[in-house]
Design a protein around this nucleic acid. Structure first.
Lengths: 123, 123
DNA sequence: CAGGATCCAAAAGGATACTG
DNA sequence: CAGTATCCTTTTGGATCCTG
């Protein structure tokens, strides 16, 4: 199974919080976002998990991190890479599929993931 | 987070073995397949896990189970529902994305998931 | 043939506190 | 601000054996 592309990919993006983090990063204008900013957007996530996931995603080249050392304390800015942006369309497809076959969530139906508020409004 | 469509969907299809099982069920002609047949196709999976996943997928309406009680011992036949078949295209998109941005797997590139052998050839 | 039952190991994730 | 460190609970999954 180790060679299965699907299997390996799920090991990367099939983890808890990962898709939510990607959606939050992408949301709106795809601007850079800071650590605590993200933490505030994703209700319920602990700094440990956010840190872990961001590191994984960075290693996979799905997001990037920029550090501004001139500021004190230093600040980190996260944003999506090209491959990350390309992946958003898959997340949107998954959402469409789920809304068609699995759930009936009017709030989700009214908006694209780009502006989706359902990733952050409830715990 | 409990209301997030993406989050809920990942709880269904983001689990170990699930995507591989769907691919195996779909592979070829989308014929019905029996329990031990699937077990043989998916190297390394234990009956417990296969049973667990099949039950989950059936509850979600992604696959269906047909039991032939006239035969002894009774036999079970699994096949995909419409929503399951619709989901295959997402798996294929994930695979394409992964092959573009993440991995270089020539074996996968040569074939569609429908005939993908990489889900079963190695452990 | 199609699982269920049991036991166990490992991993994942949450809570909380702390630091440069 | 941006994380680490520590501890602990829960979940997950693997191994093995058993049964109608």
């Amino acid at each position: 199974m180790k060679d299965c592309t699907i299997y390996k990919t799920m090991d990367i993006i099939g983890k808890r919080w990962t898709l939510c983090i990607l959606l939050e990063l992408y949301k709106g204008d795809n601007n850079e976002k800071q650590f605590n900013e993200l933490k505030g957007m994703i209700k319920g996530i602990t700094p440990k998990m956010l840190s872990t996931r961001l590191k994984e995603l960075e290693e996979q080249g799905i997001i990037r991190k920029r550090v501004d050392s001139t500021a004190l304390p230093a600040r980190s800015f996260y944003s999506m890479t090209e491959s990350g942006i390309d992946f958003i369309r898959i997340i949107q497809d998954i959402k469409k599929w789920a809304l068609t076959w699995q759930f009936d969530n009017p709030k989700c139906k009214m908006s694209e993931c780009k502006y989706c508020t359902n990733t952050v409004t409830s715990k």
